[in-house]
């Protein structure tokens, strides 16, 4: 199918007289990369029978884990947005000393090994930490709770929301915000009615990216909460305890859900995207 798309574009190129060997080589190499991405997923799908898939979908433990994963990730994303959007706006609009350092700090979770991120989050919520002791006063143990899962998900995925929203706010012309101020709007009203609606595609894209990244997190989550099991942990557990055949249907089910989220992300991100075609 991919090669059909390329062949169609190829004939268009010849008509447009922009055909070059460089472009042909690039198309071929790009095809190999796409094959590398698609082949394992197709292998996963073709080696799982429909009855196995339906059995996995009917499994209460699987259903509960998918519900937990999606629910915690969605709630975490919404709560994180309240904190991430003002920070993203400041990063887009203000110049201050130490801004580059702060940007590095925001990006740290992206470069950390996720198991190390899990250990870091565990240190914050363990019984001997300030937060852990506070929860203990109310008889709660944060480790192994949906709260711990949300913390781990947020820690590794919040940079995606902050960076995407920051890019969106940066693309809003400053003049529009200034015009609103001179018309009597308070800075918060300007943020709400001008900056946020105009940065909406990037903010939505960031929210979906954070949600998708959070729900697929394994390394950090497994350290703070093996139980209750999120779906990535459940897939690992079934693979570890019963083998590949038992883990695969759950994996396929979760891949389908992830792909649906991914399609949603691409559809939302498409609005306002510039054409970045370069003639090679």
């Amino acid at each position: 199918m991919l090669f059909c798309i390329f062949a169609r574009n190829h004939s268009k190129m010849q008509r447009g007289n922009t055909y070059t060997w460089t472009r042909l080589a690039f198309i071929f190499i790009s095809g190999l990369v796409l094959l590398f991405l698609v082949a394992p997923l197709l292998g996963l799908f073709f080696s799982t029978s429909l009855p196995d898939l339906f059995q996995a979908a009917a499994d209460v433990q699987v259903q509960q884990s998918i519900g937990l994963t999606l629910g915690v990730s969605a709630l975490t994303t919404l709560i994180a947005a309240v904190f991430a959007l003002p920070l993203a706006y400041l990063m887009a609009r203000k110049d201050f000393r130490g801004k580059a350092l702060l940007q590095g700090l925001i990006d740290i979770p992206i470069v950390l090994p996720h198991s190390a991120a899990g250990i870091a989050v565990l240190g914050c919520i363990a019984r001997d930490s300030a937060l852990g002791r506070l929860a203990d006063l109310f008889g709660l143990n944060l480790v192994g709770s949906p709260f711990a899962i949300g913390m781990a998900m947020a820690f590794v995925s919040i940079p995606f929301l902050i960076n995407s929203a920051r890019d969106g706010f940066q693309a809003v012309p400053l003049r529009l915000e200034q015009a609103a101020l001179t018309l009597g709007a308070s800075p918060f009203r300007v943020f709400r009615q001008i900056s946020l609606p105009l940065a909406k595609p990037s903010v939505l894209s960031g929210l979906v990216l954070m949600f998708a990244r959070g729900m697929s997190e394994f390394g950090a989550v497994v350290i703070v909460a093996y139980y209750p099991m999120t779906t990535p942990v459940l897939i690992f557990d079934r693979f570890n305890s019963f083998g590949l055949g038992y883990a695969r249907p759950v994996a396929v089910l979760f891949v389908i859900i992830s792909v649906l989220v991914f399609i949603g992300l691409r559809l939302m991100g498409r609005t306002g995207k510039k054409n970045n075609d370069v003639i090679l």
């Binding site: 012309p173 003049r175 529009l176 200034q178 015009a179 609103a180 101020l181 001179t182 018309l183 009597g184 709007a185 308070s186 001008i194 609606p197 105009l198």
Partner: peptide
């Protein structure tokens, strides 16, 4: 700026692109 009795017409007009003309004018 929001407390000053000053109106400004910017060189690029700075109309809000996500609002129609009526909503632009009605903003203040």
């Amino acid at each position: 700026p929001q407390k000053r009795p000053v109106g400004i017409l910017f060189q690029d007009y700075a109309l809000f692109p996500h609002m129609n003309v009526y909503d632009n004018i009605a903003y203040a």
